[in-house]
């Protein structure tokens, strides 16, 4: 596969989406390419498949942990083992991410934030497996996730503030201003407020995508050095660096899932308490 020194092309091929899923021993599965709904090509791709795998794993994890925790609770025992580990993460996200940043309404949003965190985490981690792919290293995926965050932020803001209060978050007039000044300020500030609203999901999209893709680029570039130089010495150095990068990627996988969930919570909280 990596015969030629065209490492850039290999890196792009490896990190981009594809209609082909690669398996060990050079086996491949070709996915259908002709699914169209409302004129949009919705053929499943590699990232779709890995997203579904991630979703299934998340569901199994949470469902199994929930069952275990519930059973231990019924028996009047303290949580233990796998259930306790998942519970600790769930509680951390619920208490220190959702409730801490959204406020007293945080419990309502906790399931969404938790799902976001675990789904992104599993997508990130799947990319670290051999033959795996990182759905969160795709702008469409991170964009769609940010879109759900955007909708959640705006809808929750609308419901918390009411139509008038919500309108104030778009047409901003500094308090105490009247007459022409107020109109002028509203005229100037409204585009800024709208941009402010749109920048948040855009930042979420790019941050997750860039972090996941960049890590893979670095790893692949380091591995590419081996094929460019064709030297055992370089190979040893590259492998050492790649191992280190892999550990860093493991950290980044958790960190980015945490940051996405945290920022979404912060944005929801900001809207809830906007005056």
């Amino acid at each position: 596969m990596m015969q030629g020194p065209d490492i850039g092309k290999a890196i792009f091929e490896h990190t981009s989406d594809s209609h082909v899923i690669e398996w060990p021993f050079g086996l491949e599965t070709h996915l259908p390419t002709n699914w169209v709904i409302f004129g949009i090509n919705v053929s499943p791709t590699k990232h779709v498949i890995f997203m579904i795998i991630a979703a299934c794993l998340v569901f199994l994890t949470i469902w199994y942990a929930g069952r275990q925790v519930e059973r231990r609770h019924r028996e009047g025992k303290a949580p233990h083992g796998f259930g306790a580990a998942v519970e600790a993460m769930v509680l951390f996200v619920r208490n220190d991410v959702a409730i801490a940043n959204i406020g007293h309404d945080g419990e309502k949003f906790a399931p969404y934030i938790l799902t976001l965190f675990f789904f992104i985490l599993y997508c990130n981690l799947l990319g670290l497996l051999p033959w795996g792919a990182t759905p969160t290293g795709n702008l469409a995926v991170t964009g769609a996730l940010a879109l759900t965050a955007f909708v959640t932020i705006e809808v929750s803001g609308f419901r918390a503030l009411g139509p008038r209060g919500y309108l104030k978050t778009i047409v901003f007039v500094p308090p105490g201003m009247k007459g022409v000044g107020a109109v002028a300020m509203a005229f100037i500030m409204t585009p800024i407020e709208i941009i402010g609203k749109l920048v948040k999901p855009f930042a979420l999209t790019l941050r997750l995508f860039a972090n996941m893709t960049a890590g893979h680029f670095v790893i692949l570039a380091l591995l590419g050095l081996i094929f460019i130089f064709g030297s055992w010495l370089v190979a040893a150095g590259s492998v050492a660096f790649v191992t280190f990068m892999m550990l860093l990627e493991l950290l980044v996988a958790f960190l980015q899932a945490y940051i996405f969930a945290l920022l979404t919570s912060v944005f929801i909280g900001m809207m809830q308490h906007a005056h």
């Binding site: 090509n41 053929s43 997203m51 469902w63 942990a65 929930g66 702008l139 469409a140 769609a144």
Partner: peptide, 29 residues
């Protein structure tokens, strides 16, 4: 940016969210 993938992401995430909301989080929370 693949429009189909946006669709798929929303579907997969939505289904996961719904399933977890119903069967996943209540058990733990």
């Amino acid at each position: 940016i693949n429009t189909g993938l946006i669709f798929w992401t929303i579907v997969v995430f939505g289904v996961l969210l719904a399933l977890l909301w119903r069967f996943g989080w209540p058990a733990i929370l």
